[in-house]
Amino acid sequence: MPEALHEQLMRMAGHVRDPQRHAPPPGIEARRLAVYRQLFFGNVESLLAGSFPVIRSSLGPPRWRALVEVFYADYRSQTPLFTELAGEFVAFLEQGASVAHDLPPWLAELAHYEWVEGALLLSDRSAPPHDPEGDLLDGIPLLSPLAWPLAYQWPVSDIGPDYQPHQAPAQPSLLLVRRDADLKVRFSRLAPLAHALLGSLQAQQSTGRQHLERLAEAVAVDSATLLPQGLALLENLRAQGVLLGTRV
Rank of each mutant, 00 (worst) to 15 (best):
P161R: 13
Y152T: 04
P192M: 07
H195E: 14
H166A: 15
G241W: 05
G241Y: 06
D180K: 01
G208T: 01
L190I: 05
Q167H: 14
G199Q: 13
A203I: 00
K184M: 10
A224T: 13
A239M: 09
K184E: 14
A239Y: 01
S173D: 12
A232N: 12
Q205T: 11
R238L: 11
L197Y: 04
L243I: 04
A239P: 11
R178N: 04
D222H: 07
D158Q: 15
L233P: 04
Q205M: 04
V185K: 03
R214V: 02
H211K: 01
A191F: 00
D158S: 07
A170P: 00
P155N: 03
S223Q: 11
L233Y: 09
P172Q: 12
D158E: 15
Q229D: 09
P192C: 03
L244C: 02
Q164K: 13
G230M: 10
F187R: 11
A203S: 10
Y163D: 15
N236D: 14
E213V: 00
P192E: 03
L215P: 06
L198I: 06
H166D: 15
H166T: 15
E213P: 01
L215H: 08
R178Q: 14
L174F: 05
F187K: 05
A181L: 15
L174R: 07
G160A: 12
N236M: 10
L215Q: 08
V221H: 09
T207I: 01
Y152Q: 10
L226Y: 09
L197F: 09
L237I: 00
A220Q: 12
D162H: 13
Q167T: 12
L237S: 03
A170K: 12
Q171Y: 05
G160W: 11
A151L: 12
G245P: 05
Q205A: 13
G245V: 02
Q202C: 04
V156W: 10
G230E: 10
A232V: 05
R238Y: 07
G241P: 04
